[in-house]
């Protein structure tokens, strides 16, 4: 699905490479989480995966990126819009400003793709239901709260049915209930439609609960890559300035104090923690 080969990138007027010799393969239907300290290059990698590097941000680029068989560097940005979708942290900036109700805001992308009205209605209604936005359908997007706006931003991208969904800290402004709603919706989308998701998040508890695979990005390079149980309990995590989930931290303390057998595998989710302490 997604192939990155020897990818190196430097922003215009940048003094060093933001991404350096990245090799990555993400399978279709995989929920891939990217974690790392601030300034590691996570957002830049999101821009590469959605074609904004090099089509929007120029700079010095080498290597290849292929998504669903298309070379990202050779495909114009408007063509990529239906293949990859990007949602980022600031909800206000993702509102188009061109539509006056939530329903029409969600339909905006489909209108740009010139889809028939019946299909626009069908898709919009389904997505509003999925993201719990039906009751807000007639409200102006600007009148929503930050959390509601972020759900709207996600719905506006999901409705376009991209094959690869790239989420750059999409839940950073959401409360725990909304965060759970968003992750559950994404999980069901992956299961039902084989959507491939790349998620950048600092909320490691959620990453552990939903991701199939986790990679640590630091100083523009992939420092570790593997299943959540392996990466989120490894020493690499703290080496790269990240803190383990609360479940892992408590369990580690229990092992160190001799409360639990030190050979037992450390948990990363709530369910695993319950089993760990049983």
């Amino acid at each position: 699905m997604v192939y990155l080969k020897n990818l190196t990138y430097r922003y215009p007027r940048g003094e060093s490479d933001v991404l350096h010799d990245i090799n990555l393969t993400i399978q279709e239907g995989q929920f891939f989480a990217l974690i790392g300290p601030n300034g590691a290059g996570k957002s830049t990698l999101c821009y590469v995966l959605t074609g904004f590097v090099p089509h929007f941000y120029k700079g010095k680029l080498s290597g290849t990126v292929t998504i669903n068989g298309r070379d990202v560097f050779d495909t114009p940005l408007p063509e990529l819009a239906g293949v990859t979708g990007l949602v980022f942290a600031t909800p206000f900036n993702q509102i188009s400003g061109a539509r006056f109700t939530v329903r029409e805001e969600i339909a905006f992308g489909l209108e740009n793709f010139a889809l028939p009205r019946e299909e626009i209605i069908d898709r919009t209604e389904k997505v509003m239901k999925l993201f719990n936005l039906t009751d807000l359908a007639e409200r102006p997007p600007t009148a929503l709260s930050g959390g509601q706006q972020q759900r709207l931003a996600l719905a506006s991208i999901i409705v376009m049915r991209p094959r690869l969904l790239v989420l750059d800290e999409p839940t950073s402004q959401l409360d725990p209930v909304s965060t759970h709603e968003v992750f559950s919706a994404l999980d069901s989308l992956i299961n039902q439609e084989h959507l491939t998701v790349v998620l950048v998040s600092h909320k490691l508890e959620w990453v552990a609960a939903f991701a199939d695979r986790v990679a640590i990005l630091d100083q523009g390079q992939i420092a570790a890559d593997g299943p959540p149980e392996e990466i989120l309990t490894s020493a690499e995590l703290t080496i790269h300035g990240l803190t383990p989930t609360q479940f892992t931290a408590v369990s580690l303390m229990a092992q160190r104090t001799g409360l639990i057998d030190s050979k037992k595998a450390l948990p990363v989710t709530l369910d695993q923690a319950v089993q760990f302490f049983k």
């Binding site: 929007f56 940005l77 600031t90 489909l110 010139a114 028939p116």
Partner: peptide
């Protein structure tokens, strides 16, 4: 950021858009 968000929703496509509003 707004320009990126618009491009991500196909604003730059050179087709005549349809409309939900009748």
């Amino acid at each position: 950021e707004r320009a990126i968000a618009l491009e991500a929703r196909g604003f730059g496509r050179r087709v005549k858009p349809t409309s939900l509003l009748i």
